[in-house]
Design a protein around this nucleic acid. Structure first.
Length: 538
DNA sequence: TTCCGACAGTGGGGTCGCAAT
DNA sequence: ATTGCGACCCCACTATCGGAA
């Protein structure tokens, strides 16, 4: 509350046009909003955590301006080519050298993406509403539709500064074909019954309460989220973070151009498939989506031959990745031929989706029967899909929110592993041993590390494990404490992936702690053989 | 008054491209 | 060629706080 008021006051002060230059004040508003939310306006500056290791001593007094700092980052973002690293380092040294100690801390937080002020996008959004004295929901909606807070803040506060009502400025932000909106996100549930419960779908057979309303189950594909905008032949493809990847995915552009709709905004997932339609591992989809597609060489046998010749190099891997095709599957539609559908219930949007993207939709089941829903989930998993998303048929498209309208369910695996080492935490975990290194037993002796995790620990567990692991300490290396391999921990994870980093060539995906097992010794922990079997056939 | 939803924080694995070595 | 770094793809989970009930 106090935080929101303080930020609101700062926004009002920034928007006040003291210098008789309304555009400059409006520019400052955009920059300040970004900084408060912990972001730079520049998407990439080339400056990161490592660049903060050797900072010049701070300046004695404050001289930096908002516009000046933004200009400095803009300059760094523009640097490229030989010598750019040195030039960037110099620009960074100039900027930080002109900053006071407090300003240095703030700028470092921005650069590293670790502001740790307990206020990011959402709190800033509330503060903006307070500063302009408008409804926070209306501000949120405008921000989601615009895909960014800065321009909304600029328009609203400029109106206020000019003595006008801010509401019309807010209403001016609409879904626009060609400009991405923040995608709707899903909550998660441990299993299908829990997901149905969360949506308030009673499930069949309980014989009491209101008649089951039914839910929609989508197969959850393990690829990358795409939001596709089409106006005539102009097609643009955006990622979940609203990055424009159109140039990298010509096959998706072509697929969307072939759809029977002139103007549309579609939400979906793209992934690489085998000839029989089985999904390729996520890593291959990710590699492909980070690479430019091979230039018409999708079936160039010579190129494949060259790329697979040993020894395999990073370049060859990238060439292989470029040969893969990404296939789009859509599960929602936000706009179709002049009609905005964000506020329409899912059941309406799905009707439109079937019309505008026939044959390009994810597999789906609408049911009120809990057993049928379970069977659908089991079938999806058997097909090696990631799981399902259970959806409320009456829910609108809640752009930018992890709304209760969508609930994902994925299968969960567990292993009993041994803690090999542990790292000192940071931030609110400072002073606690936090991130644990996990190993499976090697029948030939010793342990094979499969990854790390810091997830699933309560404060109580952190306290306990800090004491316990200090007892098992055998030595230290910087922030890593090595241990006698005696403590067994039950780990949940989503699956195993190929690893270039770990000695077994395997790593856990999304590992988290379920509980420490004091009823098992390290000799009773799972072996690397068990893990390999799991990775091989599931 | 208690309960609960949304957010912030704390990091995980992998991949690419780029510049420096 | 190899290495280190930044940026981005996929994320899970707990503590906290304000507003809903």
């Amino acid at each position: 509350m106090a935080k929101r008021a303080a930020i609101a006051e700062l926004l009002r002060a920034t928007a006040r046009d003291d210098a008789g230059a309304p555009e400059a004040a409006a520019d400052d508003v955009e920059i300040v909003v970004a900084y408060l939310a912990g972001e730079l306006r520049q998407r990439r500056t080339g400056l990161g955590y490592a660049a903060l290791r050797d900072l010049p001593p701070p300046a004695a007094g404050p001289t930096l301006t908002v516009a000046g700092v933004d200009a400095a980052f803009e300059k760094m973002a523009g640097l490229a080519g030989p010598g750019s690293a040195a030039a960037r380092a110099q620009a960074a040294a100039d900027l930080f050298g002109a900053a006071t100690a407090r300003e240095q801390r703030f700028l470092a937080g921005l650069v590293a993406g670790e502001l740790r002020q307990g206020a990011l996008d959402s709190v800033v959004l509330d503060a903006l509403a307070a500063a302009a004295e408008v409804d926070a929901e209306a501000v949120r909606r405008a921000v989601m539709l615009r895909g960014a807070t800065g321009p909304v803040a600029r328009a609203v506060l400029a109106a206020v500064a000019a003595g006008q009502a801010p509401a019309p400025a807010l209403a001016g932000f609409r879904l626009e074909v060609g400009r991405p909106v923040r995608p709707m996100l899903a909550q998660s549930a441990p299993d299908v019954p829990a997901a149905l419960e969360k949506l308030g779908v009673a499930g069949a057979g309980d014989g009491q309460g209101p008649a089951p309303a039914g839910a929609c189950l989508d197969v959850k594909l393990d690829g990358i989220r795409i939001q596709v905008h089409r106006r005539g032949d102009d097609v643009r493809v955006f990622t979940r973070s609203l990055d424009d990847i159109t140039d990298r995915v010509p096959e998706i552009v072509a697929a969307v151009r072939a759809l029977p709709v002139g103007e549309a905004v579609l939400d979906g997932e793209a992934l690489a498939l085998d000839e029989d339609g089985t999904p390729r591992p996520f890593q291959e989809t990710a590699a492909r989506s980070a690479t430019r597609a091979a230039n018409g060489a999708a079936n160039d046998a010579a190129a494949v031959e060259a790329a697979s010749a040993d020894p395999p190099s990073a370049t060859a891997e990238a060439e292989l990745a470029a040969q893969l095709e990404l296939v789009p599957f859509f599960f929602d539609v936000l706009h179709a031929d002049g009609a905005d559908l964000l506020d329409a219930p899912l059941r309406e949007r799905l009707k439109v989706l079937e019309r505008v993207a026939p044959g390009r939709t994810v597999r789906r089941l609408v049911t009120a029967d809990a057993a049928a829903a379970q069977a659908f989930f089991d079938g999806a998993v058997a097909e090696r899909q990631e799981g399902v998303v259970v959806k409320d048929l009456d829910a609108p498209y809640a752009a930018g929110r992890r709304g209760a309208g969508w609930v994902k369910v994925k299968p969960r695996h567990t292993l009993d592993l041994v803690v090999l080492a542990v790292e000192w935490g940071s931030g609110r975990r400072q002073g606690w041993l936090s991130n644990i290194h996990l190993g499976a037993q090697d029948p030939e002796g010793g342990f094979v590390m499969l990854g790390k995790t810091f997830k699933g620990m309560t404060d109580e567990m952190l306290e306990w494990q800090t004491r316990r692991f200090l007892e098992l300490e055998t030595g230290r290396e910087r922030h890593v404490v090595h241990l006698r391999p005696e403590q067994v921990v039950e780990i949940a994870f989503d699956g195993l992936q190929r690893s270039p980093r770990y000695p077994g060539g395997l790593a856990l995906r999304f590992a988290r702690v379920l509980r420490y097992r004091d009823d098992k010794t390290a000799a009773e922990a799972d072996t690397i053989e068990t893990v390999r079997t799991l990775a091989g056939g599931g």
